[in-house]
């Protein structure tokens, strides 16, 4: 049985860039714990000699020539942005 603590949930939320309320942390601790306990089912299987599958098709690297191409105009790229200035995406201050 694996348990997940509230502290772990808060740490994972930070990694995932999510701000959870105390109530959400409480609920998530319970629900993630249940799901992860359920996933322990996989440990019934001995997979020491099994290769992982990352992808079902046996694809190798797909190469192409590195040629500059027109794709999206700058003004189009900016038109769905929440905030912009002088042709750039604008964000709040990064430095404290």
């Amino acid at each position: 049985m694996s348990e997940i603590s509230k502290e772990q949930v808060k740490h994972v939320a930070h990694l995932a860039r999510l701000a959870l309320t105390d109530e959400e942390v409480e609920k998530m601790t319970q629900q993630l714990g249940d799901i992860i306990n359920y996933a322990e089912l996989l440990n019934e299987l001995d997979t020491d000699n099994v290769e992982p599958t990352t992808h079902v098709l046996d694809l190798k690297n797909v190469m192409r020539k590195d040629e500059p191409k027109k794709w999206i105009e700058k003004e189009d790229a900016l038109k769905n942005a929440p905030d912009q200035k002088n042709g750039h995406f604008r964000v709040p201050s990064i430095l404290e």
């Binding site: 701000a19 790229a77 769905n80 942005a81 929440p82 995406f89 990064i94 404290e96």
Partner: peptide, 21 residues
């Protein structure tokens, strides 16, 4: 940043990510 809804409450970049999401 590039599209979608941004939280209006954020005062710095990290909070903007977290609150928007």
């Amino acid at each position: 940043v590039r599209y979608g809804v941004r939280s209006e409450k954020a005062e710095n970049m990290l909070d903007m990510f977290k609150l928007s999401r």
